[in-house]
Simulated scan of single mutants.
Amino acid sequence: MQAPAALVALFNDDQVSVVQGDGAFNVGGGAAWQHSVSQWALVTSSHQATVVSDTTLDPRFASHPLVCEEPFIRFYAAAPLVSAAGARLGTLCFLDTQPRQLDAGQALILSNMADMVVRHVEQDKALQQRMAQNAELRRIHKQMHDIVDCFEWCCVVLDTSTPDWTIMYANAAWNKVTGSDRNEVLGRPLASVLEVPGAAPLPGPAHIASVAAGQESKTLLAKLHATAVAWAPASLTEWAMAA
């Protein structure tokens, strides 16, 4: 664009925020500039680009302090930042202290750059949402673990999305009941830790069907697999699994 200044302004319900500015004169902060952006970026609600070749000849801009005084802006071009859902996120603006025209090639560049900014903004928002969701999941998991650690009997959390039902968590009672550190079984398949003598490896078809249906599934007289850990196997009188 070869303009001496550019900025990205994002909108919300009651204000316009300059999130990125660059150029030969100040476009990044100050109450006067923030106010001017609020006026100029909202000149039109159209999704079409706004181009003012000479601000002194446009009644919307001619009396504005940044036109009449430093930095004496004469040219203004802004492409709206429109989300995939059609919401107006903000504006990509280019400014100059000299009157100028915007040819077809430059207009296309302005539009393409606006599309790039929109993709970046939407990706950033999606990332922030995922981070917030992950933080909430971590909080819920910690709360659940704190509660389950108070139980006197062994409890483990299994990842039933894996074919072998990987052990994701074991509560503090595991150490007392088995005499071993619960961290030794984390990430291991269920069948490598527990077995039912004379039966198929866990999880069996009945367990898979029950848990898939959201029902409890019980196995009596399961024991720790002989090769599971470096300590002697212990017997568990009852092993229950529930979704």
Rank of each mutant, 00 (worst) to 15 (best):
V229F: 07
L224K: 08
H207S: 12
A212W: 02
V211Y: 11
A212S: 13
S235E: 15
A234P: 12
L220R: 14
A226N: 00
A191Q: 13
L194M: 13
A232M: 12
A222Y: 10
V211P: 05
I208A: 09
S210D: 13
G204H: 07
V196Y: 01
V211C: 08
L190S: 01
S192V: 04
A234Y: 14
V211I: 10
A222G: 15
L194G: 07
A232N: 12
A232E: 15
S210N: 12
L190C: 09
K218T: 15
E195N: 03
L220W: 14
A199R: 14
A234R: 15
P205F: 01
A209S: 04
A212H: 06
A234N: 14
A209Y: 07
Q215L: 07
A200H: 05
A191S: 15
T227I: 05
H207E: 13
A228S: 15
K218D: 10
Q215G: 10
Q215F: 05
E195W: 01
L236T: 05
G198M: 08
K223G: 06
Q215V: 05
P203E: 02
L221W: 11
T227M: 03
A232L: 08
L221H: 14
L220D: 15
A212P: 02
L236G: 02
A230P: 09
L221K: 11
A230E: 12
G204C: 09
S210Y: 04
S217K: 10
A199K: 10
A226K: 11
L190W: 06
I208H: 02
I208T: 12
A200T: 14
L236Y: 07
V211F: 03
P203N: 07
A232H: 13
V196C: 00
A228L: 00
E195Y: 06
L224F: 12
P197M: 00
L202I: 05
L202Q: 07
I208V: 15
A212R: 11
A200F: 05
P201E: 00
L236E: 05
P205R: 08
A200L: 13
L194Y: 12
P201H: 06
P197E: 10
W231H: 14
P203K: 09
L202C: 00
P205L: 08
A212C: 06
L236D: 00
V196P: 05
L194H: 07
V211A: 03
L221A: 11
S210M: 03
E216C: 08
T219V: 11
E195V: 00
A213Y: 09
P201W: 07
Q215R: 13
T227Q: 14
H207L: 08
A222K: 07
A209E: 11
L221I: 04
Q215N: 11
A191W: 01
A209W: 05
S235P: 04
P203S: 01
L194V: 01
V193W: 01
L224V: 04
L236M: 13
A213G: 05
A191T: 08
S235A: 15
A209D: 03
G204A: 04
